[in-house]
Amino acid sequence: MKYLVCISKTPETTAKIAFTNGDTQFDKNGVQFILNPYDEWYALVRALELKEAQGGTVTVINVGTSENDAVIRKALAIGADDAVRIDADPTSAMFVAKQISEYVKSNPFDVIFLGKETIDYNGSEVGGMLAEYLDLPYVSYAMALDIEGGSAKVTRDIEGGSETSKINLPVVVSAAKGMAEQRIPNMRGIMMAKRKPLNVVEAVAFSDKSKVVGYALPTGKTEVKMIDPENMDELVRLLQEEAKVL
């Protein structure tokens, strides 16, 4: 089995969010970047578990500039066999999906994993776009995935429950909580990662269909109103009359 894991780089969860250039660009100044948690903890680790149990290879792919090599090396340190970086600054989800689809068309895989979303733009879009470009089935927010013969058995999160289905390979899957447990790279993994192949591929031309034109920070939350613990009637009144949520 050949597994491909799409990995992205995102600001660390506690990063301070600020903008520059007349609020049209994310301010990277002083921001620490990490592998997108869903890609790292769930998608990559599940691909590695399947490989360890049944054989195969795990390739990670990223659309980004050489600034991303550190997070790509981390994925190799966790256990991926090799990496591909498509050399471009990603400007939209469709841009990313287009680039990855072009690569996969000439280098096919059995299962293509993504994270459920990136924690910066919270899109959940790349997976569906990639599947459409490749004309493959796509299962989003998968909580479990097993390979049985030539098909995948996938359980995905739906509102108020879960749904389990069987799909012939190849398939595109986005991974959510439940799929696997985070792995911390060990010293040996980190040493080996330095020697694993990281192939840089040229991007294809693509013009975006949607673009961010400006950012804003949420308008300041009003000061919290402290309520006397002995007076819950007052809280209920405020929820009904002031907040109008009851």
Partner: peptide
């Protein structure tokens, strides 16, 4: 922007050659 919608939004954008915004 539900479990179905998240599956559909990207597919529809590519199919329709449209600009998409999720959520």
């Amino acid at each position: 922007h539900s479990s179905q919608g998240k599956t559909l939004v990207g597919r529809l954008a590519v199919k329709m050659d449209a600009g998409s915004v999720s959520g």
